[in-house]
């Protein structure tokens, strides 16, 4: 095996390993949402090619208000779907659209765009 081949092989394998680690294994940053004075756990989620933050942590039983601000016109992110709660919101570009939930059962609940390309998660403890 020539030197260049060995380099390509090692580089390819390590790159693959890194991809797997980065997307699948590494811990995502969890944003803990604090309860506001009114008792609502309110968060702002920016929507641009993805949700940021995309993993949010809440407490059980308290009302949750997610304010989505879609900062793009790309059709992908037009809808946000909370299929565990049969809820869906159409996000008007550059406007705040709120989704309100109240989750009584701890667990992880995903949310995603209309076709499941963009994903986020609510962790309820």
């Amino acid at each position: 095996m020539a030197l260049d081949q060995i380099i390509v092989l090692i580089a390819g394998l390590s790159l693959s390993t890194w991809v797997a680690w980065y997307f699948w294994v590494s811990e995502k940053k969890v944003v803990k949402v604090v309860t506001g004075s009114g008792g609502t756990q309110e968060a702002i989620i920016k929507v641009k090619g993805g949700y940021s933050p995309d993993v949010l942590e809440f407490e059980t039983g308290k009302p949750i208000k997610l304010n989505f601000i879609r900062e793009e016109t790309a059709a992908c992110s037009e809808e946000v779907v909370f299929s565990d709660f049969n809820k869906k919101a159409t996000l008007t570009p550059f406007k705040t659209v709120s989704v309100e939930l109240e989750i009584d059962k701890p667990g992880e609940y995903g949310f995603q765009c209309g076709m499941g390309m963009l994903k986020g998660k609510l962790i309820v403890r």
Binding site: F23, G49, G50, A74, M117, K119
Partner: peptide
């Protein structure tokens, strides 16, 4: 442009998509 902005946003969130 949407491919790059989309890809970057997803990358920051440690996810990947069509973009």
């Amino acid at each position: 442009s949407q491919f790059y902005t989309g890809a970057w946003a997803a990358f920051k969130n440690r996810s990947a998509n069509m973009h």
